[in-house]
């Protein structure tokens, strides 16, 4: 952690970056995102097990972008998000410094995108262990049981769209749900419309989800909506042998075609 603070200070003092995006402790001790522009305040940075949020979500926010060149405290999911954002042309590798942190909290030396790619490639890219277990349980259910489970869960949705806001890859300035000509997704919350929203969200993340689980964590009513996108990440890996966020030049599996692609899922 001291290394992280020292490095952050150095970056700010030498004006290499204008802002450090990291974590700080809130008044109740909960970790919250911090945007540090003053080197004197770099001491506020923390990194420990409380720091779970995917900070990459701030990379595309105009308010943060306008602060200038940034450095970001990056766990594996953050790094994968950065890769996705670069491949989808939302950020440029030159405009960002990655302060990589390993799972044990030590500062990694991520000099450039190539180093980051190498680090990502040697990491476990599957879904988090506890979510894997949940998915195994869900997949044991029959189709009808699974549908009933999701109907029950999604009926709780209040359409607050926190799942969308927390997701680093839901960066559209105007989301489909905000289109009312035509009104694709009903405004009010009802089970049917809620399912439409969650299916749409999952489809928009198919082949893009980097399994950070931020959407599920953000849900105020406790819907495990991250399992939908994580299941799709599994499916995509199963069919196309790729994990999202592993290369800066990754093409979307849904928009590219290789003659040897499996087509067994086409009915």
């Amino acid at each position: 952690m001291n290394n992280l603070i020292a490095r952050a200070k150095e970056l700010l003092e030498n004006k290499i970056v204008q802002v450090i995006v990291g974590y700080e402790a809130g008044p109740t001790g909960v970790a919250r995102p911090a945007f540090i522009t003053n080197p004197a305040k770099a001491d506020l940075l923390i990194y420990d097990e409380r720091c779970v949020q995917n900070l990459a979500v701030y990379l595309t926010k105009p308010e943060v972008r306008n602060l200038g060149k940034m450095a970001i405290v990056a766990t594996l999911p953050v790094m994968r998000s950065i890769m996705m954002l670069i491949s989808e042309q939302q950020i440029f590798a030159d405009n960002i410094i990655v302060l990589g942190v390993s799972s044990d909290g030590s500062l990694l030396d991520i000099a450039d995108i190539k180093v980051m790619q190498a680090y990502i490639e040697k990491s476990d890219l599957g879904n988090p262990v506890k979510d894997r277990a949940l998915l195994v349980e869900l997949n044991k259910l029959s189709k009808e049981e699974r549908f009933a489970y999701w109907q029950k869960e999604l009926s709780k949705c209040i359409k607050c769209y926190a799942c969308r806001q927390a997701c680093p890859l839901c960066y559209c300035t105007r989301c489909t749900v905000e289109v009312n000509q035509p009104q694709w997704i009903p405004v009010q919350s009802n089970t049917h419309g809620n399912m439409e929203w969650h299916i749409l969200r999952a489809m928009h993340l198919a082949g893009r989800c980097i399994s950070c689980g931020e959407c599920g964590r953000a849900c105020p009513v406790g819907i495990p909506c991250h399992l939908l996108t994580m299941q799709l990440a599994d499916e995509v890996h199963n069919y196309f042998k790729v994990y999202a966020g592993t290369s800066e030049k990754m093409s979307s599996v849904l928009s590219t075609f290789e003659p040897n692609d499996k087509e067994s899922f086409i009915i």
Binding site: E88, Q89, Q90, Y171, C172, T173, R174, S251, S252, L254, S255, T256
Partner: peptide, 15 residues
Amino acid sequence: PMYSTCVGCFLCQSV
């Protein structure tokens, strides 16, 4: 400041 609701992901370009 919007210019377009397009966010420039260029998925369209690849398809």
